[in-house]
Amino acid sequence: MIQQLSERLVSMGQVLLALDTGVGLLIAVGFSMSASHLFSLLANRLTPRQIFLHMVMDALVLSLALLLCLISHCLMLALLEGVPLQPITFGNRMAVALWPGLFYVLVAAPYVSDLIAVALLASIHLNMMVLVNAMYGIPLLHAFVICLPGYVVALLLVGALFSQRWRSSYDTLAKEVALQIQR
């Protein structure tokens, strides 16, 4: 069973290597993630122009967070496995692991959002491990350790951005309700 699973993961790694889409995917994933929280911008009572600008900015910040995640993987590889630092080549080849993030826009759905988000993020992490394994022949368990810090950093950055957006929207709501009651 474990042997079968391991073989499947290895073949998945080969497929991902063949895809090789480059860092362009980072931006697309950033936009998908940004779009998933469009309603928080609406709740902030922003104009369509402001909403567009915020979405673009958020997409870029989220792409940056994912880029940091990849750089962290690169550093961990250099530290733990002695792989020479080649951030640009590494980033170009590893970005394909982020493809499940293209569906992150579905996290906008109510109630099932957590389930979708966890599934997509877990699948991104699995892709990272599998790709590190396929590219450098590092065992999956080691790959897990290498990919973990960067992944946690990216999650914290993404979480911080989204929670800040929602918090400000609740403040807007509370302020408006209070104003209307006072009148």
Binding site: F39, L106, A108, A109, P110, Y111, V112, I116
Partner: peptide, 10 residues
């Protein structure tokens, strides 16, 4: 399901 949910939220 997600699309219908998003429409409903919209």
């Amino acid at each position: 399901l997600a699309l219908v949910g998003v429409y409903s939220v919209m």
